[in-house]
Design a protein around this nucleic acid. Sequence first.
DNA 1: CCAATGATTGTTTAA
DNA 2: TTAAACAATCATTGG
Length: 163
Amino acid sequence: MKVTKGKAAARKDKKEALKPVEDRRLGKRKAALKADKSTKKLAKKEKLAKKDPNKPKRPPSAFFVFLEEFRKVYKQEHPNVKAVSAVGKAGGEKWKSMSEAEKAPYEAKAAKRKSDYEKLMAAYNKKQESMADDDEEESDRSKSEVNDEDEETGEVGGVCFFT
DNA sequence: CCAATGATTGTTTAA
DNA sequence: TTAAACAATCATTGG
């Protein structure tokens, strides 16, 4: 990854103490999601913030691939485990304990996942081109009108039956 | 009942 | 390059 060659090398002695949110990035995506939702409500019919059902999600990292299996195992040993944080912590701890050789198979899988991701992205981009002209290519325009404002349904009725 | 949260690390992506 | 957001999971909680 030669970016600036020698230039970057000069900063090698600099400590990487510049990480404001690396210690404990509390729910950050929560803020994003919240903002998104709020915008959506206000925007309503705006084509902005359009949802992409076909949008490919990011490929899971080797750690996540490992977690998928780790979670299963963890559940077996701790069937009474409560929060996801427990598995996360345990998995992270073990992950750090594993050597690269052991992580290799997971990385391999992650690499393959990325391969598929690129493919999905290609298809996704292609689709975007198709509908980049007008609204969605869903052809379901009438649906948009229906869902204009239906939040006034009042309370649910007998939902809270468990006081 | 629906949506958000928490905790982990790695990859993706935007500027 | 750097910094930040987001990927899965799922019981729990709040509105």
